[in-house]
Simulated scan of single mutants.
Amino acid sequence: MTTWDPDELRKVGEATELRVTSEREDGTLRPSVTIWNGVVGDAVYIRSAAGPNNGWFRRAVRSGRGRISAGGVEKDVTFERADPEVREALDAVLHAKYDRYGPGPVGAITGDDVLETTLRVMPR
């Protein structure tokens, strides 16, 4: 696994929105979706606000590969289920970054029931 360049990781983490897409079986990219993200340690994390049946999330899990674009960084990436240990730290990052949008939107990506929809995003 490749690690993030510290400058790219900072730029992605500072970006309010991230565009994410997954790869099809033939290697082509699906249309991208705009979502929120957080950086904890050496990784970018994303969550499905609409639960595990959200289309972009199911496709990202299935393919395990895709691309993100945020903060002027465009990168081919891998997606993997997040370690449960990251939940509290990621919730804190997401609250600090997005609480200004109100409890509804932030509540959809924080709390006890979101770990199953949390992906660790790493460059490849």
Rank of each mutant, 00 (worst) to 15 (best):
D113L: 14
E88N: 09
D76M: 07
V39R: 04
V39M: 01
S32R: 14
G102N: 01
V114P: 02
V40E: 08
D5E: 12
I35Y: 02
G38Y: 03
P52K: 10
W4Y: 11
V61Q: 07
V20E: 01
G13A: 09
V39K: 01
R58G: 07
P52Y: 07
T110R: 08
R65Y: 06
E25P: 09
D113R: 15
L29V: 04
A70W: 08
W36D: 02
G64L: 10
R120S: 05
E88A: 15
V77K: 09
M122V: 15
V33A: 14
V121Y: 07
L119W: 10
G102L: 03
K97T: 07
P31R: 13
T28Y: 02
D112S: 15
A60I: 07
D76F: 09
E17Q: 14
L9E: 08
R10D: 14
D26E: 02
G72W: 03
G102W: 01
G66D: 05
H95I: 12
I46S: 03
T78R: 14
R87Q: 12
E8D: 15
G107E: 02
G104C: 00
A96N: 09
W56Y: 09
A60C: 10
D5V: 04
R124T: 13
K97Q: 03
P52D: 13
D113S: 13
G55H: 14
I109E: 01
P84V: 00
M122K: 15
I68L: 12
S32Y: 12
E25N: 12
A70N: 08
L18S: 07
P52A: 15
I35N: 02
S69C: 14
G66M: 05
G41R: 06
E17C: 06
D112F: 11
P105W: 04
G51L: 02
I35G: 04
G51C: 00
T16Q: 14
P123F: 07
A89R: 15
P31S: 12
E80I: 11
V33S: 13
I109F: 03
T118R: 08
G102P: 01
P123E: 07
G64Y: 10
A82G: 09
N53P: 00
G104F: 14
S69W: 10
E23D: 09
T110Y: 01
R65W: 06
E116M: 13
R19A: 14
P105V: 05
G71I: 04
L90A: 01
T34K: 10
T118Y: 05
R30W: 13
A96G: 13
S32Q: 14
S48H: 10
Y101C: 02
H95N: 05
